[in-house]
């Protein structure tokens, strides 16, 4: 077989398989990507957060605890999303083609949507303080913080962002009882669900986080 012939054959195969490829190869690539980022485990963690919230909502909470409760599980889900950004492959993957940014974007968006809907679903029928809108805003905002941290610090320690913000957000809620109240929209968990400023801030952070993770990906780990 001459070199030319080889090229011809592969080209022919290429042409033949081309039309069938994108859907199946795409699905397969998405599956492998998901496995490499532990996305199934992240989905399990999100589900665990939703189940935890559901169980916790069955208990009796005073008004302050009831407000904090969803925030804790939202932060857990956001942190789980955040740590999926760490890549185990590094350079070989980065140079391997143009699909990677889209995969990162799709994974982050899908997981955020999954987390928000899982938590909202967990709250239906029970008294979920703030309701669905609140869950969506808080999950998106905290995920945004986590993605920004991942882009800046690396995927491994990026959970420091959402979990740190959890403490701050819970404190913001607390100050509504024991002043001086923190009312900046940047601490959105402490604002009512229909507050426009808070929604804009959370949305902005989420957009920035998504953009950073899509374009740059998580930074390679430092430290240790």
């Amino acid at each position: 077989m001459t070199a030319d012939r080889v090229r011809e054959v592969t080209a022919a195969q290429h042409r033949k398989t081309r039309p069938a490829r994108p859907p199946r190869a795409g699905v397969r690539l998405a599956r492998l990507y998901a496995a490499s980022r532990r996305i199934p485990a992240a989905v399990a963690a999100i589900a665990a957060c939703a189940i935890g919230l559901r169980i916790a909502l069955a208990g009796h909470w005073d008004s302050y605890g009831a407000l904090q409760l969803p925030l804790v599980f939202e932060a857990g889900a956001a942190a789980a999303i955040t740590v999926t950004t760490a890549s185990p492959h590094g350079d070989p993957e980065r140079v391997a083609g143009r699909w990677l940014p889209f995969l990162r974007l799709a994974a982050a968006l899908a997981l955020t949507a999954a987390a928000a809907s899982a938590l909202a679903a967990a709250g239906t029928g029970a008294h979920l303080a703030g309701g669905t809108l609140d869950a969506l805003r808080n999950v998106a905002g905290m995920t945004g913080i986590g993605l920004l941290c991942a882009a800046a610090l690396g995927g491994g320690l990026a959970w420091a962002g959402p979990t740190g913000y959890l403490v701050l957000g819970a404190y913001g809620l607390y100050t509504q009882w024991h002043g001086p109240a923190l009312t900046t929209p940047w601490i959105w968990p402490a604002r009512p669900p229909h507050d426009l400023g808070a929604a804009i801030c959370a949305g902005l952070v989420f957009t920035l986080g998504i953009a950073a993770i899509t374009v740059r990906g998580a930074r390679d780990p430092a430290g240790e």
Partner: peptide
């Protein structure tokens, strides 16, 4: 997932 979940769990245990 252990570290982030441990952090959130610590908060949950303490605050709630």
């Amino acid at each position: 997932f252990t570290a982030p979940l441990a952090t959130v769990a610590a908060f949950f245990v303490v605050a709630l």
